[in-house]
Design a protein around this nucleic acid. Structure first.
Lengths: 138, 138
DNA sequence: TTTTAAATGCAACAATGTTGCATTTAAAAA
DNA sequence: TTTTTAAATGCAACATTGTTGCATTTAAAA
């Protein structure tokens, strides 16, 4: 069994979710993908009906197994959550970087820690999207 | 003449763009809206054809008169750019805040300045989306 | 007032995302 | 192992979002 499939099954078991073939394939395909996976690529990589894919994605996001990034290019990108995500709260110390040349979206860790403060509102979660030129495209 | 319409006409003139009724209405409607304006609300507020709205939005984004924020709720929100935007480069010192209760998206200024550093890639622009509970909903 | 390049409206299309309902399936119970 | 059952899936239908080509209209210059 592939490493990513074992990973998928383990995480489904740890969350008490049924281990269906679509769920296992979906998690392992996202996990195997070098960057955050665009929806179109995800759909191509699976046999399942579109409806099932959308419902499965929502289930896995509710359980904080994966998360999504909406980019300005109108694509939605999915990535597997890190260990810092529990089943109740997302907490990402990473950012999403999209290269303006090759369009790839990757999850990146910041060198420096950043602290956000707002005057009025209560902050629950922060998502940072950076655009630029990636290492390979320079 | 309303203040926001004058504002719209001035900004169109300053960028050397035709002052069509759709453009003026679109800019002033976004400008008048208390928060970043969801596309659906924008469409309802205008007489123009959907195609024209999309094309106008793209034109105004290309000219850095407005900018958009894609939120996880699958809505696209539009707001007027601040003075720090020239016609060639977006440079926002603000973040987009979406309240998880009332769903409103607002442009907020950070109390503290933040500095992002990535190990490999070249950063061109940064967009920060914060979720939480707004002042009014608490 | 005339000219003209740009903006608009319309038709058609492709992609994204959702809902209801019948069928199938993973996992628990017998 | 077989049976049971609640959950997951596939299918059909639909609504929304976003794009393209082309004929018509319009803002602004001549």
């Amino acid at each position: 069994m592939e490493v990513s499939k074992t990973f998928a099954k383990n995480i489904l078991r740890s969350r008490g979710l049924k281990q269906t073939s679509t769920r296992v394939a979906l998690i392992s395909n996202i996990h195997n993908y070098a960057a955050a996976m665009p929806y179109t690529a995800l759909q191509k990589s699976l046999e399942a009906d579109r409806t099932t894919i959308y419902r499965t994605l929502n289930t896995l996001m509710d359980e904080c197994i994966i998360h999504k990034a909406k980019e300005k290019d109108n694509e939605t990108y999915y990535a597997v959550c890190g260990n810092e995500c529990t089943s109740h709260k997302h907490s990402h110390n990473h950012i999403h970087f999209q290269c303006t040349v090759c369009k790839k979206v990757t999850c990146e860790t910041l060198i420096n820690e950043i602290q956000l403060e707002l005057a009025k509102h209560h902050i629950e979660s922060v998502e940072i999207n950076v655009n630029g030129v990636c290492d390979e495209c320079r």
